[in-house]
Design a protein around this nucleic acid. Structure first.
Lengths: 149, 149
DNA sequence: TCTATATAGATGCAAATGCATTTATACGGA
DNA sequence: TCCGTATAAATGCATTTGCATCTATATAGA
């Protein structure tokens, strides 16, 4: 590992600050519209992508980057709101399959109306398509390597 | 506001995911070394920059991007640990000035040993100086405009 | 001067989170 | 088959957070 460069520190600081600001603004917009948080969207999005087959909670964990207990509780809330349903899985008595309900799809749409607009406003309107690609490319190079533990 | 472009969505997703991963990895490294979180570092850093004059809590709020009550509680903990001291401010009986102590400076150094190494590993080693500058520049364009409220 | 309003900072309480552990089932080997 | 270990998911409990409010002082205006 090389020494911490000023360029790395500046880029880091910007990344930390900007990501927090963007999340905060978006969460505020959702809240102002009486909608649940981004975490709910993420789960509903993954489940919508997964289709009728649904997903196992442990599959959701890597996709949404949350702790096991967070997913467990989030799913309990989503179920209580009728946005998802839990199904027993035949070949593994420990587990369950989680599937999005029509109500869940509707909620996902409603969140996206605000979330998508927020992305357009906060990113799309500030950088060109080319710049966005460059940004995504650079960020992609920062993705975590497999945790060595 | 224009329509949400695929490029904007991809860049957004990367930004969200990468920033969370980097924070998580760094927080884990700090925890593994028995050190307090990044929020503590941020406050200690700002106070160290501010020098002997210290800062008012409300000044700290914009700098570290935390809620008023978060700063209030964070400062209480830092004071309890002897890392900062609160001084009454002569011309405003409501307020106080917060100043870093020698112990606070020492703690800042110890956190930086890990934090700086984390930045070097996670950013410095993955992108060139030129790429880091490009990244910082693009992120800078995403900084929040003054909240319109 | 007196009153109304604004600002600085702290805090009570409910909800959310993190950690460790628990429960239940699966699997691999003696 | 039985036992030890691994994995899926939930949960008890302590800590932390968010929201709203509170206290105290300042400031502007009648």
């Amino acid at each position: 590992m090389t020494k911490t460069s000023p360029e790395a520190v500046t880029a880091w600081a910007r990344l930390m600050r900007v990501s927090r600001q963007l999340v905060e603004r978006t969460e505020d917009a959702l809240k102002a519209n009486g909608l649940p948080s981004l975490a709910w969207y993420d789960v509903l999005h993954e489940l919508a992508e997964a289709g009728e087959g649904g997903l196992r909670p442990f599959e959701l964990i890597d996709r949404v980057l949350l702790a096991q207990y967070s997913v467990s509780r989030l799913l309990a809330r989503l179920e209580a709101d009728g946005l998802i349903e839990k199904l027993p899985v035949s070949d593994d008595g420990r587990g369950q399959t989680v599937r999005i309900t029509p109500g869940g799809r509707e909620m996902r749409r409603r969140i996206w109306a605000i979330y998508g607009a927020s992305i357009a406003e906060l990113m799309g309107d500030r950088l060109s398509a080319q710049e966005l690609k460059t940004l995504a490319g650079l960020l992609g190079r920062l993705r975590a390597p497999p945790a060595n533990d």
